[in-house]
């Protein structure tokens, strides 16, 4: 078993990790947009109607 701290990623592994990170970032971005869109669609202008 290689020591995890001393393990160096191969270029291919680095590329795969980069692609996973980009996909995760995009997924989280889309999730935020979806939740915003659902909030707007369900509440509309009422979203601002709250006690200050």
């Amino acid at each position: 078993m290689t020591d995890r701290n001393s393990y160096h990623l191969t270029p291919e592994e680095q590329q795969r990790r980069r692609r996973r990170s980009i996909a995760l970032g995009l997924t989280l971005g889309i999730l935020c947009i979806l939740l915003f869109a659902v909030t707007m669609a369900k509440l509309g202008p009422q979203v601002l109607n709250r006690p200050l």
Binding site: M1, T2, R4, Y7, L9, E13, R16, R17, R19, R20, A23
Partner: peptide, 13 residues
């Protein structure tokens, strides 16, 4: 098992 790091690509997921 070699490094415990994920080996999967986006297409695999």
């Amino acid at each position: 098992a070699s490094n415990g790091l994920s080996q999967g690509d986006v297409s695999d997921f």
